[in-house]
Design a protein around this nucleic acid. Sequence first.
DNA 1: ATGAAAGCGCTAACAT
DNA 2: ATGTTAGCGCTTTCAT
Lengths: 342, 342
Amino acid sequence: MTDTMPRAAVPTLDEVALLAGVSRATVSRVVNDSPRVSPEARAAVRSAIAELRYVPNRMARSLVTRRTDTIALVLNEPNTQVFSDPFFASIVRGVSATLADTDLNLVLLTAQDEREQEKIGRYARMGHVDGVILMSVHSDDPLPDILAEAGMPLVMCGRPFDDRAVSYVDADNRGGAEVATAHLIATGRRRIATITGPLDMIAGVDRLAGHRAALAAAGLQSFPQLEAEGDFTEAGGARAMESLLGRDPELDAVFVASDPMAVGALSALRVAGRRVPEDVAVVGFDDAAVATRCDPPLTTIAQPLADMTPLLTELLLRQIEGAGEAVESRVCRTSLVRRASA
Amino acid sequence: MTDTMPRAAVPTLDEVALLAGVSRATVSRVVNDSPRVSPEARAAVRSAIAELRYVPNRMARSLVTRRTDTIALVLNEPNTQVFSDPFFASIVRGVSATLADTDLNLVLLTAQDEREQEKIGRYARMGHVDGVILMSVHSDDPLPDILAEAGMPLVMCGRPFDDRAVSYVDADNRGGAEVATAHLIATGRRRIATITGPLDMIAGVDRLAGHRAALAAAGLQSFPQLEAEGDFTEAGGARAMESLLGRDPELDAVFVASDPMAVGALSALRVAGRRVPEDVAVVGFDDAAVATRCDPPLTTIAQPLADMTPLLTELLLRQIEGAGEAVESRVCRTSLVRRASA
DNA sequence: ATGAAAGCGCTAACAT
DNA sequence: ATGTTAGCGCTTTCAT
């Protein structure tokens, strides 16, 4: 099947001005909602715009304003599985909603590997976007440096590995993990395992640190065989749980560093014939308000996404408007909750 | 925590020219890999570019070339659950990979509702992108019209509802569904149910049509109570399966119009105490090569994503280069396979 | 309130 | 092979 279709002719400001019988400057003022235009002129311009179906040319405008009115949300994730983590969807939805009533556009950029990260770095530096929100950063990712060195307004979702001066918004991962493990201890558990997140991600590191801190605070020792690294996916959680059960069949509790992994861990426990929570108690850490079908309901540390997403854009916009001067960070409080089964 | 950081000064072509001791035109030629430059000049320019960390200004370039070297992949999906469908991830990954060695950039745009679709329409019309790949189109989405009327190069992933002249790439949904149901019939099943996709999406409609055609071809009648509409999610599949079992406990097979839904259906069958495939045979339709953990292995119609993603970009690029003249479509063959359990 | 004019940084003829 | 020049479509002083 082949057919043809003429490319639409794109009208310019001058054509609108001609049709409306005013100057380009006036049309520009109308388009940009300047108050210094007479009602008659405004009306004439408006109707000319409608008639010609005029849309301003972004490139021309951006060339002079130095603004694109576009911000990028970068998903830095080689693991396709993780791309479908509900956490991403929630952040995207949240940021998108925050921007809905503004005239800012949101674009998503994904990087599977270093090459794509560099491509994104170039994309941003060329002036396609006014600022960047960076998600899912791994310890060896070059993109934060590329962007920071270019002076690009930048907010990271999750604190950076080093103590660099960069804006970020994060959940209290360490504190949340402490609460989780302390809860398990409080309910009488003593052989408490953990399934960690990827340890090249700060959320993985912080949640493990919180877990260990809670054990230490209770005078419990942390054993390497009670720690298994997962990858934030359901399948990875199941594998890690199997591995833990193999290493120490007597374990009576597990703190799982993300809810998708917790769902996987629960099914691994069921396969192994362990009852939850009678034999093994489980606490998760939610990477979104996951409406998971898990029976029994999952006790979990709730990450305050509703707080985090507006902050992300707020911090970025402040940086963009303030010519990139202010670097600030926020840590949002987490809390222990019980998710009903679906 | 607050700190300051100077905004980097951005060098222009002229500054590079000055430093390299050549004209702007020569610098431009080097940047654009023109062969008409002497090796010495090229070297001088290269080092000046490196020294100044020069990056061309996209807006200025695009203003004259009328190209942005960016294409958009639009995810048209109000349902967040579906956003995490592995099908999306696979398409994004595939298109992204196809573009990796080119100097084309890919941006993802998501629309939760009509307002956001219109915003995306404006974004595209303003000249941010050279072309658009549209995914997950529902029957009442305004975006295809907005884009088509603006003369924006456009390829749809999935055929349009009406017989409009628009490029698209699709799997053979109808044919695949026919094969699926015919397979169930061939193995002796007679009370064959189906869990459909959303019927405001063409894939949902086509797969149902194929299912019905296979029944008709075998002289079997299709009953409304043996058809339940799902939403392409795992939870939706489980709900639909429960509903079907309630309406006809005697059913002996089910064709499920997507693999995530099939996973849900399998767990609903297990909960209901039905053995698979002894009591109820199941055939899915994969929305990606989903590495689903299902036991027993799932028989499914494989959608040829490896064929589809390069086609998507190929058709779009041809349209962009050919000034939007050619409209063409491709339907990729599907086949019955058996997915091993993970 | 409106228009004239300059210029954003780049590419692409056209000259040489 | 290289330089000169003329815009691309818009915003923004600066006049009026």
